[in-house]
Computed example of a mutant assay.
Amino acid sequence: MDGICNYFLNQTTSGVMEGINNRLKLIKRKAYGFSSFDNFRARLLAFFSD
């Protein structure tokens, strides 16, 4: 109930954060077989860099 009331007070949603989480999960699924965490980290940084 608090979340619903906060939307009407602030007019903000968690949509941006949900989108970021979805992209992270997608990259993690595609990263199956990466040889190290450094490769996974490099993929994340490349994906989210401007």
Results as ranks from 00 to 15, higher is better:
M1S: 02
D2V: 08
D2E: 09
G3E: 02
G3I: 00
G3L: 01
I4F: 01
C5T: 09
C5M: 07
N6E: 09
Y7W: 07
Y7V: 07
F8M: 08
F8A: 07
L9P: 05
N10Y: 11
N10E: 12
T12Y: 00
T12G: 04
T12R: 05
T13C: 09
T13S: 15
T13K: 06
S14G: 06
S14D: 03
G15E: 01
V16E: 03
M17H: 01
G19C: 07
G19R: 08
I20K: 03
I20M: 01
I20Q: 04
N21D: 11
N22V: 08
N22W: 08
N22P: 03
I27G: 03
K28S: 14
K28R: 15
K28D: 07
R29P: 02
A31M: 05
A31D: 04
Y32G: 12
F34C: 15
S35Q: 11
S36G: 10
S36V: 00
S36W: 05
F37S: 13
F37V: 13
F37C: 12
D38C: 10
D38M: 11
D38I: 10
N39I: 12
N39A: 12
F40R: 05
F40N: 06
A42Y: 10
A42F: 12
A42V: 11
A42D: 13
R43Y: 03
L44G: 03
L45C: 13
L45S: 13
F47R: 04
F47L: 04
F48N: 00
F48C: 01
S49D: 11
S49V: 09
S49Y: 06
S49G: 04
D50W: 02
